[in-house]
Structures are given as structure tokens and as C-alpha cells.
């Protein structure tokens, strides 16, 4: 095994990802020097406060607005990507993603209902929307799994993909109906359906971060099982992996990751499909590497897309979902066709 080469690739990826993060934090309508930026970050980490010579306003802009936003984008990108990687292994389909299970559209319906009915959570009114999104995402997946189980007990892949598709079509219908009934929120709903990191702050990061870490560790512990699962249910069973149980547990984790991401930012497509795919091209299919690298690549890609979404037509913002699709889709098509040519 070419361990050295892999190590080098990991190191380059990590540096690249850090570089992209710094670029994303620095770039915008207000400029900051690297020294000041690190001064601000250092000041907050050490608790010394804003260093001398840096305007407190810069501190606000970078520490309160840009950094959490960039990190939020990074974590959402990472979370979506590892859930995508996981789904692709479980369904033995490199073109699958959590979308095929309808998590995203399910979450949108939850948020839409909250907007239209005006219901709020007691004690945490600010989290009503994300919470509803998450719960509905989970509900959709659960429905998908239950339906699939009713149809065939071993939950074959085709069944899951089909059910997910049918459910998300149905759910989209409900969503469209809701936005037709409620014109007042249609703009908000529309933005939410396309995804945005605008005004995402530390409070979002504070929830995303632990969820990401816990789910990531959970999936990493299952990484060998996922390797085995990617040979298909039958072979996995033969090798001693309880395919059904593994599927349910990992789908729940994926639902949590996707649900919370979608809830905080709206529906952002494509990243979860592309990042693991690119990572597999670079690092091979072993999940011990695919999972962490997908997180890094997906995160960096999402942060870049958010940078574009807020700077391209500044001060106006483009929905980040539109950016991911516009950049990602042609790129993905290229990767897909290139690999097909190679196989031939």
C-alpha cells in the first residue's frame, strides 16, 4: 500500500482546505490583513480581546459575521458530504445521496409548515424552524424505510431509491401547495428551498459542531462495516455484517446530519453527491479515508460556494444552492463521463 503517497495527499488536502477557509473568511466587501485577522482570532481564543490597532468594528465583522458564516458553510458542506458518502455505500450507488431518501424535501415541508402556521417552540423560539426541518426530515426517512420494509423485508436498494423518490415528489407537491396558499412567505420559502448562509452565526455553529463531531465519530466507527456494505447486502450479510441494522443506524445518522444542515441553511443540493465521488477518485473507496476527506472537501467546496454567493453580485446574495448546482453540476458531469470513458 502506498502509505506515503496517501499521507502526502491528506496533508495537501488539509492545507488546501485551511487555505480555502482563510480565503473565505478574508474575502468580502470589507478587507482585512492576514495579521489583523489572526490577531482577532487569537484575541478571541486566548480571551485577550481585540488586539490593539484593530478597529473593534473589524472584530465584529470578522468574528461575529464572517467566521461563523464560513465555518457554518464548512460544517454543513462536510455534514452533507459524509452523509452522501454513507448513503452511496449503503445503496451501492455512487450517484446516490441523502436526497434520494427525501430528507431534504421532508425538512423543507417542516419549515414551510412552521412559516405558514406561525407555530413556535416554547423556550427556544429561534430554533423552531431548524427543529421542524430536522424532525420532518427524519419523519420522511422513517416513512421511506417503513414503506420499503413493508414492500420487501431486506430493504433492497432499488426499493429505497424508488421510495425516496416517490416520497420527495409527494413532499414537493405539498410544499408547492403550501407556498401557493401563503403568498406572504413565498419569498422566504423560496430562499429556504435554495439554501443560504446569510446571517448564520455562532449559535448555529454551536449546534452544528457537536452534531457533526458525534455523527462523524459514529460513522467512522462503522467505517469498516460500510466498506463491507458497499459490496451489497448479500455479501455484507455473508461477511458478518447485519445489513438491515447497519442500514437503519447509518440512515438515522445521515438523516440527522442532513436534517440539521438543511434546517439551518435550506436545501442545498449536489455537494453530498459530488464530494465523496471526487474523494473516492483521489483516495480510493475505503471509508476510513473517504469519510474524513469527504468532510474536508465538501466543507471547503461549500465555503467557496458561499463566498461566491455573497460576493458575486454583492451586496445582493445568490442562493447558495444555485451556486453549488451551477458550479458543481458541470464538474460532476465531467468526472462522471471521464470515469466512464476510462472504464471502457
Amino acid at each position: 500500500m502506498n502509505k506515503k503517497g496517501t499521507g502526502l495527499k491528506i496533508a495537501i488536502s488539509a492545507v488546501l482546505c485551511l487555505f480555502i477557509l482563510v480565503v473565505c473568511i478574508r474575502a468580502g466587501s470589507v478587507y482585512i490583513s492576514l495579521k489583523d485577522l489572526f490577531g482577532i482570532i487569537g484575541g478571541h481564543i486566548t480571551g485577550k480581546g481585540t488586539p490593539e490597532g484593530v478597529a473593534p468594528m473589524m472584530d465584529s465583522i470578522f468574528w461575529t459575521i464572517r467566521m461563523p458564516r464560513a465555518l457554518c458553510a464548512f460544517m454543513v458542506g462536510g455534514a452533507l458530504s459524509i452523509s452522501g458518502a454513507c448513503m452511496q455505500a449503503l445503496l451501492q450507488n455512487p450517484l446516490a445521496s441523502s436526497y434520494t431518501l427525501g430528507v431534504s424535501s421532508g425538512a423543507s415541508v417542516g419549515a414551510a409548515l412552521v412559516l405558514v402556521t406561525g407555530i413556535t417552540l416554547p423556550f427556544f423560539p429561534n430554533f423552531t424552524l431548524p427543529f421542524a426541518g430536522f424532525v420532518f426530515g427524519l419523519l420522511t426517512v422513517t416513512c421511506a424505510i417503513l414503506l420499503a420494509r413493508a414492500i420487501d423485508r431486506s430493504i433492497s436498494n432499488t426499493t429505497v431509491v424508488l421510495i425516496g423518490m416517490v416520497l420527495s415528489l409527494f413532499v414537493n407537491g405539498v410544499l408547492n401547495l403550501l407556498s401557493t396558499f401563503d403568498d406572504a412567505h413565498s419569498k422566504q420559502l423560496y430562499l429556504w428551498m435554495m439554501g443560504s448562509f446569510s446571517a448564520r452565526g455562532w449559535k448555529h455553529c454551536a449546534i452544528l459542531f457537536p452534531v457533526c463531531i458525534v455523527c462523524f465519530i459514529g460513522l467512522m466507527l462503522m467505517s469498516r462495516k460500510m466498506d463491507i456494505m458497499s459490496f451489497g447486502d448479500l455479501q455484507a450479510q455473508a461477511m458478518g455484517v447485519d445489513a438491515k441494522k447497519t442500514k437503519i443506524v447509518s440512515i438515522l445518522i445521515c438523516a440527522l446530519l442532513t436534517g440539521i444542515s438543511v434546517a439551518f441553511t435550506g436545501v442545498i443540493g449536489f455537494v453530498d453527491l459530488a464530494a465523496p465521488h471526487v474523494v473516492r477518485k483521489l483516495f480510493g473507496p475505503t471509508h476510513k479515508l473517504v469519510l474524513p476527506m469527504s468532510f474536508i472537501y465538501g466543507g471547503a467546496f461549500m465555503a467557496l460556494c458561499d463566498l461566491i454567493s455573497r460576493t458575486l453580485l454583492s451586496p445582493r446574495e445568490i442562493p447558495v444552492g444555485a451556486v453549488t448546482a451551477l458550479i458543481g453540476a458541470p464538474f460532476f458531469a465531467y468526472v462522471f463521463f471521464a470515469s466512464r470513458r476510462k472504464n471502457r
Binding site: A89, Q92, N93, P94, D227, S230, F231, G232, L234, Q235, A238, M239, R280, G284, P285, T286
Partner: peptide, 13 residues
């Protein structure tokens, strides 16, 4: 240990 008849390959391990 069972070696199944079908051996579909989805990912290039």
C-alpha cells in the same frame, strides 16, 4: 462463510 454466486462490484477497492 458464504461465497455468493453473484459478486457485483460497485466501488473499486
Amino acid at each position: 462463510s458464504l461465497m455468493p454466486q453473484t459478486s457485483d462490484i460497485y466501488f473499486p477497492y
